[in-house]
């Protein structure tokens, strides 16, 4: 079956242990998570998960429903790359003597629009936001130049291109449905 890189955006209550429950849905279905990011969202007390995984549409639909079934999950949706703005960031720790002795290294860094954010006599830190491919390409070139001491790439974060905020609508709808909410989530 044809596989696509899907991005899942999951909103949940801020409750300990939920991350396990969300990732377990992937594990049970033998799907590898490519990247995972968890952070606060624009709504107080609501967490946002951004998860990417290669799979087919049929499976991702089932995954979404099984995640949504968890009691403390508010909403889950899946997206393809054309439906979202996405970004990653990478940090490269490189040797300062190499940086100074090899002019090519600073050229590479400039060509990729990366930023040097820290320099000392031993190492320098380069920061590069972007898409996976460019980030990896930069890493490969720096690696070839033989100057990389450490490298780390973040998970993908994504924001939807849609003009409606589904999570806000969802929450408003829920509140509407049950105006009398006693003593919920403390």
């Amino acid at each position: 079956m044809d596989k696509t890189l899907y991005t899942l955006i999951v909103y949940s209550e801020n409750i300990a242990g939920l991350l396990n429950q969300v990732t377990a849905v992937f594990t049970r279905r033998q799907i590898n998570i490519e990247s995972l990011n968890v952070s606060a969202s624009s709504i107080d007390g609501v967490h946002k998960y951004t998860i990417t995984a290669w799979t087919d549409e049929d499976t991702i639909k089932k995954v979404v429903k099984q995640i949504e079934k968890k009691i403390d999950v508010l909403q889950a949706h899946y997206f393809t790359d054309d439906e979202i703005f996405l970004q990653e960031i990478a940090l490269y720790k490189i040797s300062t003597p190499e940086l100074q002795s090899n002019a090519n290294v600073s050229k590479i860094i400039r060509r990729y629009n990366a930023r040097i954010v820290e320099v000392n006599s031993v190492y320098s830190i380069v920061e590069k936001p972007g898409l996976t491919e460019e980030i990896i390409a930069l890493y490969k070139e720096l690696q070839e130049a033989g100057c990389v001491l450490q490298y780390v790439r973040s998970g993908r974060i994504a924001i939807t291109k849609s003009r409606v905020e589904r999570i806000n609508e969802f929450l408003a709808g829920r509140e509407e449905k049950h105006r009398h909410c006693y003593n919920d989530l403390n």
């Binding site: 209550e13 009691i71 508010l74 829920r174 509140e175 049950h178 909410c181 006693y182 003593n183």
Partner: peptide, 11 residues
């Protein structure tokens, strides 16, 4: 005494 008959994340 507490009643829970609504959880916003659970339908």
């Amino acid at each position: 005494p507490t009643v829970v008959d609504f959880i916003r994340s659970y339908e």
